[in-house]
Amino acid sequence: MNLTELIHDLQITRRDGASTDGVDVTGIAADSRRVTDGMLFVAVKGTTVDGHNYIASAIERGASAIVCERIPEAIDEAVKARVPFIVVPDAAAALGQLLDAWYGHPSRRLTLVGVTGTNGKTTVATLLYDLFRRLGYHVGLISTVCNRIDEETLPTDHTTPDPVTLHELIARMAEAGCSHVFMEVSSHAVDQQRIAGLHYAAGVFTNLTRDHLDYHKEVDNY
């Protein structure tokens, strides 16, 4: 996909380095270890790791362009001369937008329902999945226990997957003909913008207790 087309809808603070014209992107990564030739690397500052510290590594692995919130001082002019840098105010939000565009806006091609709250997310999402399956719909499920595309079961290791995995999964569901997807959405995922770029048709809120204040610190934050 052409880089200029891919970043068209991003809120861009400034551009630096090489021109984006004529640059083709072979994929999108937010983990420098997964970068291969031609991929766009998005430097996201996480809770424990800052992707900006791995921009040089991503370029060494063949990244064709970088989306970031700041350009590290260690990046020299010779590197900038051959790699475009797109600076954005929020790289996590930009990552979701880019993935949505890369996969052809899959969450707009089906009815995506998010289920959030402290307790009961898995139960509610699974009950909705089972109900719609019994009604004859092609349905997807994204949950703590497992992910499903109709009867196919896929492994999972987070309540809400990382953005790259999540958008790829929803794209698979859309391609498989799912009309509805029921998805657990953790408060951590909302705070970390793992769901950025998704288009929800509806939301379900189960309840709110004090269980996750170790992460959110204050009830108002939660």
Rank of each mutant, 00 (worst) to 15 (best):
G104W: 03
R172M: 07
A125M: 05
V49T: 15
D214C: 04
R70I: 14
K217E: 04
C146V: 12
L99T: 13
G104N: 09
D130V: 01
Y215L: 02
Y54E: 08
E175T: 14
A81L: 03
I170Q: 00
E168H: 14
L213I: 03
G114V: 00
G46K: 09
Y54Q: 09
L127Y: 12
A101R: 15
D37S: 15
P155F: 13
R108S: 11
R61C: 00
H138Q: 10
D191E: 08
L127N: 07
V49A: 14
I66V: 15
I86Q: 09
Y129C: 03
F85V: 03
I142G: 11
L99A: 15
A201L: 02
R61L: 03
A93G: 07
A101S: 13
G46R: 13
E5P: 09
A94N: 10
Q192A: 02
P106F: 06
D150V: 08
L131H: 06
I142F: 02
V35H: 00
A18F: 05
V35G: 00
R61V: 00
R109S: 11
L112C: 02
T156Y: 01
G136D: 05
P155C: 12
V115D: 04
H199C: 04
G62C: 06
L135N: 01
I142W: 01
I59W: 06
T165P: 00
L95T: 12
E151L: 04
N147P: 03
L3A: 10
R108A: 08
L141P: 07
F85P: 12
A30G: 09
D162F: 06
E151G: 06
H188G: 07
T47R: 11
G22N: 09
H216G: 07
V35M: 00
K217M: 10
V44K: 02
G96D: 06
T26A: 15
L169Y: 11
L127V: 10
